[in-house]
């Protein structure tokens, strides 16, 4: 397959808006106790996954950790299926069996939603191995947090991806914290991207608050991989506005730090860029934002009205037929 046409930036902005509005709704529904378990919000990090989507094809593989709502939405999983999953309904993207941390959408090449930190990084290498095995030119996008880079599974996977020259991009969403632990306190490195050097994997850095920078950097990396299969590592510097999960007050960081990143908001920035260039009017933006809000709200109604998974199905998914 040839390179995709550049995806429309206004559409990408709409996607970022949808993710944000969806998560705001999810947060509200969590507080109303419509959602159980853990719920980790992505608000602030939207340009990372959307930038990656803008740089790749729909048939490229994607896999991520438990902060996964955005990754499914970005892949085209409907807001309805995403919200229904949070509500534990059978119409959810994992039939209500996975929950917030375990989103899956095979049809859209979204390989999960993985809640054991670092455990999906070898899976990404395995998916990429299959691409190479079958002579496909598909790349695997593997997202994880800064906390994951200290797991053994991560290191073993990077090494094997390096040895076997697998077409996988390891994307570290460095939001400066793993739960309450800052990167400086967890990681013996000057900068995260240096991890790649140890495995002779090309490493790059991008500003995760800047959609265009993420997209352009990844576009370059993806094209190089399609030409000639190899792994790459991209450290994307970003920030989560909310606590680690809904129950974390995030008292380990300063208001000033949060404010600094909020002022650098990825949605505001792309909007300003497009407006300045005459590609987006205020009216258009308002329509888009309203659409995102309506979609998020409608997903709540959809989730509420959906059925629970039937009790009789309890044993249906323990073994494949």
């Amino acid at each position: 397959m040839s390179a995709p046409e550049q995806r429309d930036e206004v559409e990408m902005l709409a996607l970022m808006l949808l993710i944000r509005r969806f998560e705001e709704r999810a947060s509200q529904q969590y507080q109303a106790q419509k959602i159980g378990g853990f719920c980790h919000l992505y608000i602030g990090q939207e340009a990372v996954v959307v930038g990656a989507i803008a740089a790749t094809r729909d048939d490229d593989y994607l896999i991520t950790a438990y902060r996964d709502h955005a990754h499914a939405l970005a892949r085209g999983t409907s807001a309805n299926a995403c919200m229904a999953e949070l509500f534990g309904k059978v119409t959810g993207c994992s039939r209500g069996l996975g929950g917030s941390m375990h989103y899956f959408d095979k049809a859209r090449h979204m390989y999960g939603g993985h809640a054991i930190v670092g455990a999906h990084v070898p899976l990404a290498a395995g998916i990429a191995l299959a691409s190479k095995y079958r002579n496909e030119d598909r790349v695997t996008l593997c997202f994880f947090g800064d906390g994951a880079i200290n797991q053994g599974a991560f290191h073993e996977a990077l090494n094997m991806a390096g040895v076997l020259k697998l077409p996988v991009i390891f994307i570290c969403e460095n939001n400066l914290f793993a739960m309450g632990t800052s990167v400086e306190r967890s990681t013996s490195l000057k900068q995260i991207v240096d991890r790649a050097e140890g495995y002779d994997i090309p490493g790059f850095i991008a500003d995760g608050m800047n959609f265009r920078e993420v997209r352009d950097k990844l576009t370059e990396v993806v094209e190089a991989i399609r030409q000639n299969s190899h792994p790459a590592f991209v450290e994307i510097r970003t920030y989560r506005y909310r606590g680690h999960s809904m129950s974390d007050p995030a008292s380990y960081r300063t208001k000033d730090q949060l404010e600094k990143y909020r002022l650098d908001d990825p949605i505001t920035r792309l909007r300003a860029q497009l407006t300045r260039e005459g590609k987006l009017s205020n009216e258009q933006f308002d329509v888009m934002d309203k659409h995102a809000k309506d979609t998020a709200l409608a997903s709540v109604t959809f989730a509420e009205k959906s059925e629970e998974p039937p009790i009789e199905e309890l044993y249906n998914y323990t073994y494949a037929p």
């Binding site: 159980g36 378990g37 534990g88 309904k89 994992s94 209500g96 069996l97 996975g98 929950g99 375990h102 629970e308 998974p309 009790i311 309890l314 044993y315 323990t318």
Partner: peptide, 11 residues
């Protein structure tokens, strides 16, 4: 029950 734990509350 002898199954991986489902997320859904009722299950």
């Amino acid at each position: 029950e002898d199954v991986p734990m489902p997320y859904n509350e009722r299950l």
